[in-house]
Design a protein around this nucleic acid. Sequence first.
DNA 1: CTCCTTACTTTGATTAGTCAAAATAAACGT
DNA 2: ACGTTTATTTTGACTAATCAAAGTAAGGAG
Lengths: 220, 220
Amino acid sequence: MATSTVENYLKHMLLLSEGGEELVSMGALAEALAVVPGTVTTMVKALADSGHVEHRPRQGVRLTPAGRRVALNVLRKHRLVECFLVNVLKMDWAAVDTEAEQLEHAISDEVLDRLDALLGHPETDPHGDPIPSRQGKLDSQVYATLATCVVEKPLRIIRITDQSAEFLLFVEQNGLLPGESVRVTERNLASGLVTAKKTAGRPLALSLAAAGKILIQPAR
Amino acid sequence: MATSTVENYLKHMLLLSEGGEELVSMGALAEALAVVPGTVTTMVKALADSGHVEHRPRQGVRLTPAGRRVALNVLRKHRLVECFLVNVLKMDWAAVDTEAEQLEHAISDEVLDRLDALLGHPETDPHGDPIPSRQGKLDSQVYATLATCVVEKPLRIIRITDQSAEFLLFVEQNGLLPGESVRVTERNLASGLVTAKKTAGRPLALSLAAAGKILIQPAR
DNA sequence: CTCCTTACTTTGATTAGTCAAAATAAACGT
DNA sequence: ACGTTTATTTTGACTAATCAAAGTAAGGAG
């Protein structure tokens, strides 16, 4: 059985490789796991021995199919737990990531399945992040963002790709939740500012960095 | 923050002291935690340093008020999680103890409170074990058992005090669930056999040891 | 091509939790 | 009171995960 430390390493590799093909750098992994780089090197070598990853010294690391399977299962637990916490326990959007971080390592596959059924087999969590299927399929569609979309076109918000409580709180307070309709009225590369406007709302200014974390689609 | 190992030590001390006054022997703790006695000695000394227990060398160990507080909180989590798994996720009676064993260390107090509300503030878990209140009150009423009760008196089953899957399965298959009505038709100390009978059922034989794990009250 | 920066790896030490086995103390029977 | 049994404690060693700091490689800048 993988320890919860191992599960975390694998999960973060999956998240950092956005789909699983590219090499993940040791530095990025260390950053994501809040650990010094030397620790990552040590751990990655152990994970290579157990067949979960392929380690290219001085270049990076990549999940093997076995490692990817474990990572997807953990991610599925994480996101389904988030759904449960928000939809059933009515918890706060911004707080559930931290909670799920613990629970993802404690719930069994049996509980996972029943939770999935209870929630009606959702396809995304409350932030719009796709939930891997039982079979390990993960929607890896690449969306445009408020930082990259066409100006003045009507858009629908699909997903928020920053789980920090502050950012989620900001998003919530300005009604930029997944499902909402918006359009970008202005984008200025020089000042790094994007102005967005909800159908019936006042214009809202945000940085390019922030805008890039809000994924969108052309409205229906 | 107490690690989940520490939480387990404290929880088992609480369970073994049936209320919290008597000294718990190191051996009993080692047995309950599936660890060798030497490990318990080491750990108990650390717990004494952190003020969670009082250690009487060569005699045993006892929870301090601080330790008891932690233990009750863990037990509350364990039992509320069991309620959730059985009542909401419709999981099997006999399997939930193992699941809860993991989850009790992963859920926050926030989630605990919401779970408690969702379940309607239950007073006992599905096995009839009392759930400690938020304030740390634990019903420590001493019940009679099928091994100690008066013969032929109508009884109500209150609680099953053995969480092993086999025993729970046996209990379930013979309809001896908490809430059910029974009476003891015969008890033979010599052969160590107890015969119980549900109001509308065939007589069932069980050992004194097994009968002692089924707590009862006089029928309403 | 050489030096420098930066990322990565190595090394040695630390902490939590554990076991095996030897040492000790208390309790017990005769 | 003496030796034996049994529970407990000690000791030394091990694993997983970590950090600090020293060492090494690879890719630019000049």
